[in-house]
């Protein structure tokens, strides 16, 4: 993936926070669900995951959250859909590394690279990882 400019990163975050495609109720009752809330932000979301034959068929979320948590959860859901468990785990690990300023595989993260500077606002790292932590837990449960 080409290096994102600040302007591109901003517009990715804005798009996914103002119009989150994966912020929706699940279609049926075969989804696994986890509730997440934050003790330092208002974020309070339910994250849903549907797996079939070791593959993520769908990932979505409902609830309320700040700009960073909404956009990041939306993008992470995008990244999960269509991946098998190992690929999904790998992406989440790279994302977590990026947020904590460790070495990470930029290419695996696609639009999620927009959060590469979140650590500038340390209090918001938990917002940027609320969705990824949820999916990590849901993938573990399978």
């Amino acid at each position: 993936m080409p290096i994102l400019t600040n302007e591109m990163m901003r517009s990715i975050i804005y798009d996914h926070s103002s119009n989150p495609q994966n912020k929706r109720e699940p279609n049926d009752d075969t989804y696994e669900k986890i509730h997440m809330h934050s003790d330092n932000c208002i974020d309070d979301i339910d994250v849903y995951l549907k797996m079939m034959d070791n593959k993520v068929v769908d990932a979505c979320f409902t609830g309320i959250g700040c700009t960073i948590s909404t956009a990041s959860t939306d993008i992470i859901c995008d990244l999960m859909i269509g991946k098998n468990r190992e690929e999904a785990d790998y992406i989440l690990k790279q994302y977590d590394n990026m947020l904590h300023e460790e070495h990470y595989d930029e290419d695996a993260l696609e639009e999620a690279n927009a959060f590469s500077q979140t650590s500038k606002q340390a209090a918001r790292i938990r917002c940027a990882t609320i969705g990824s932590r949820a999916l990590e837990e849901l993938l573990k449960d399978k």
């Binding site: 208002i42 700009t67 606002q121 209090a123």
Partner: peptide, 21 residues
């Protein structure tokens, strides 16, 4: 503007306020 986003913006300007409930 979501309250936490405003508080983060203020943080970036050195201003400490509380957001949330």
């Amino acid at each position: 503007v979501f309250a936490q986003d405003e508080a983060t913006l203020l943080n970036s300007k050195g201003i400490a306020v509380r957001s949330g409930q």
